[in-house]
Amino acid sequence: MARLELIAELKGHTDRVWAVAWSPSGNTLASCSGDQTVRLWVCSSPDDPSQWTCVNVLEGTHKQTIRSVAWSRNGRQLATASFDATTGIWERDADGGDYECVATLEGHENETKSVAWSSSGALIATCGRDKSVWIWEVASDSEFECLSVLQEHTQDVKMVVWHPTEDLLASASYDDTIKIWREDDDDWYCSDTLEGHRSTVWAIDFDKSGDNLVSASDDKTLKFWRCYRSDNSENVSSVTSEPKWKCVCTLSGYHRRCIYSISWSKVNDRVASGGGDNVIRVFERDEEAEKASAESGDNMPIYKLIASVDEAHCASDVNCVQWSPVEKFGALLASAGDDGMVKIWKFVE
């Protein structure tokens, strides 16, 4: 079996670390924490991914926990979602040094749980405890306009994530569902509701193509969903002409407690998960098992566990796992935990 090798421990936060996000170039890692700060870490050696330095601490804007952090697609801006019900937009100065909060997005009634930047860079999505999803348009570098407030979830919305190439949004909720949102003549609507989890859906992520989605839940399972167009050859039908999402694989028994985070690598197609049992798991497609299954007429994906780390964060929750987005460091996985640490792992075959 392959393994995850711990190559770096990044210390500096004074409270639990909720999330990490790699910059599009892969050379900077942002982490956000209950200490109301974001730390930016840079690999100090281009050929040695075990050497990291904290180069910036973003603070003073949020008055409560920073729950989520996301980079713009060009890497020049950073968005931060906070329990103070606001989302901060940070921009690096012309000298490429310090960051300044240039805008604050307000509107959520209480805790903002997640923020995500669209692949086009023109849209931002936020979600919160008020059961809503907000779509914001980037009107200019420092001005943002709310385009739509989506209120079809019946409970706290935990996470939003954009399709990797389209302006299509997925949201995960305490109401045990995932919703897919599309735009039609400047009006956003729910085009599909994915049901199957028996408890809170904490995290979701698309694969590189955007035709597949993975979800992680309080029910201790991972579910893989596939998008079927109206003309699909598998005869998956829909009551409308909209693409239909169907669960094609469920993984259970790999986590003992709630699964808080999931990351689908856009480089190597592996899936990493982390949760309340202080464990990180890595899965990949089992091609041999799929070939054998296909002989009986089943073309559903089959996943196998290929690497695992127990006690990943000193007997505390693993709140976030994120694969590096670039080919050079595609084997690197960053994790964040209740122990206040950010850890860098290298996948070794």
Rank of each mutant, 00 (worst) to 15 (best):
S209H: 05
D186F: 04
W181E: 05
D187F: 14
D186W: 03
L222K: 06
W181N: 07
W181V: 06
Y189D: 07
K208C: 06
W181Q: 06
R182W: 01
D219W: 04
S199M: 08
D218C: 03
D207R: 03
S191R: 11
Y189K: 09
T193D: 05
S215V: 02
G196E: 14
D205N: 12
D205E: 11
C190W: 06
A203F: 06
L194Q: 08
N212D: 12
I178L: 13
D185W: 00
K208Q: 13
D192W: 01
S217P: 07
V214E: 05
G210H: 08
C190I: 11
D207P: 02
D192Y: 03
H197F: 03
G196F: 09
S217D: 07
A216R: 02
T221P: 01
N212R: 15
V201H: 00
I178D: 07
W181A: 06
A203K: 03
I180F: 02
R198L: 13
V201N: 01
T221W: 03
D211F: 05
G196P: 07
D205S: 15
S209M: 08
S215T: 09
D186I: 09
T200S: 12
D205P: 02
R198F: 08
G196L: 10
C190R: 08
W202M: 10
F206M: 01
C190S: 13
E183Y: 02
S199N: 15
W188H: 10
F206Q: 04
K208G: 02
D207S: 02
W181P: 00
D185L: 09
V201L: 00
S209D: 07
D207Y: 06
D184Q: 15
D185T: 13
V214R: 03
N212T: 14
A203R: 01
S191A: 15
S215W: 04
T200Y: 11
D219R: 00
R198C: 10
D184T: 14
K179S: 12
K208N: 09
T193Q: 13
A203E: 04
D192T: 02
T200E: 10
Y189N: 08
D185E: 15
E183V: 10
D187E: 15
W188T: 10
S199G: 11
V214Y: 03
D185R: 08
D205T: 10
D218I: 00
D187H: 14
I180Q: 00
N212F: 12
W188L: 10
L194W: 05
E195C: 09
S191M: 12
D211P: 00
G210K: 07
E183H: 00
K220L: 08
D185A: 14
T221N: 02
G210I: 09
K223D: 04
E183G: 01
D192R: 07
W181R: 10
D218V: 00
N212W: 12
G210M: 03
D205K: 05
D187S: 15
G196S: 13
K208D: 13
D219L: 01
E195S: 11
T193I: 14
D185F: 02
N212Q: 15
R198M: 05
F206N: 02
D207I: 05
A216G: 04
H197K: 03
V214M: 09
